[in-house]
């Protein structure tokens, strides 16, 4: 820190010695000041207004401070907003179990989906600490409009910690397994999240049946036209088939089923 103050002293030749001798300065921010090139704000921030500096001073600030920091000191020179955002991301990067999870998916998901998963884990960690996550979620949705928001929600609900791992373990047992099939399946489920019912043995049949009916009514109203049922494991495949039975005579609904050869994975689409 003193290094920067010392450099500023050599650039401004005694003009601001009173300010530059202040040992409380911890942060340096290039900004607009009201009167001088250098002004102390909030007791510990030194604002540097290059608009008030002459050409030689600007050149020296670039060479002796910014270049020194970026090149020699191996630092990042960021806008104040990006600085805070990077700090927040750094403190929420995946570690421990999350790192293991990323290792598991590294060679299984398409790169885009993998990157979105990593970012969603950062969002989840920040959310757990009660930090503001709107900005981060918005970024992920903007970069991946078809699945960004959904993957954040699925990660928060831990579907990547359990369900999609189990899905891989089940699919790999099929003789004609191909990683592209797994990638397509994950994509389909993630993209269809608002129109998906996950059939799981942790929920009663009546509860699942109610959710299917509720979502069908809602989707009918908003014209989405399809609902995905996804079941993993024999018990859930059986429950899914029973749910489909409820609609077999409904002429307004067409049912498409994808069942793996082992009968352990089902993805059914109700089209209406």
């Amino acid at each position: 820190m003193n290094l920067i103050l010392d450099k500023l002293k050599t650039i401004f030749h005694g003009k601001f010695d009173d300010i530059l001798s202040n040992n409380n300065i911890k942060i340096f921010d290039f900004s607009k000041n009201t009167t001088n090139i250098l002004e102390i704000k909030d007791g510990q921030k030194l604002d540097i207004d290059l608009g008030k500096a002459n050409a030689e001073e600007k050149k020296l600030v670039k060479e002796r401070i910014i270049d020194l920091m970026v090149q020699s000191e191996n630092g990042a020179f960021l806008s104040a907003d990006s600085f805070q955002k990077t700090k927040k991301i750094k403190s929420n990067l995946p570690t421990g179990e999350d790192e293991e999870l990323l290792k598991f998916y590294k060679d299984k998901l398409k790169l885009e989906m993998y990157k979105a998963l990593e970012a969603s884990l950062v969002v989840r960690n920040a959310f757990k600490k009660g930090e503001e996550i709107t900005d981060l979620k918005k970024d992920i949705s903007k970069l991946y409009p078809t699945f960004g928001k959904n993957i954040c929600n699925l990660v928060t609900r831990e579907y990547f910690h359990t369900h999609f791992k189990d899905l891989y373990d089940s699919m790999i047992e099929d003789q004609d397994f191909d990683i592209n099939l797994y990638q397509r399946k994950v994509e389909k489920i993630v993209q269809s999240l608002p129109y998906t019912v996950f059939v799981t043995r942790y929920r009663s049949y009546d509860d699942l049946s109610g959710e299917v009916r509720f979502k069908l009514e809602k989707l009918n109203k908003y014209g989405a036209g399809r609902l995905l049922l996804h079941g993993l494991g024999r018990e859930n495949v059986s429950a899914t088939l029973n749910l489909l039975e409820e609609y077999k005579d409904d002429k307004s609904i067409t049912i498409q089923k994808e069942l793996n050869p082992g009968g352990t994975i089902i993805t059914a689409t109700l089209i209406f």
């Binding site: 820190m1 920067i4 911890k26 942060i27 340096f28 921010d29 290039f30 900004s31 607009k32 207004d49 290059l50 608009g51 600007k58 600030v61 670039k62 401070i65 910014i66 920091m69 000191e73 191996n74 630092g75 990042a76 020179f77 960021l78 806008s79 104040a80 907003d81 600085f83 990077t86 700090k87 750094k90």
Partner: peptide
């Protein structure tokens, strides 16, 4: 790499760009 403690505000972005040509 380090984050450093030097930042720039939104209202001087173009001045900073100029420093970098």
């Amino acid at each position: 790499m380090k984050l450093g403690n030097i930042t720039f505000s939104k209202n001087v972005r173009e001045d900073i760009l100029e420093l970098f040509g």
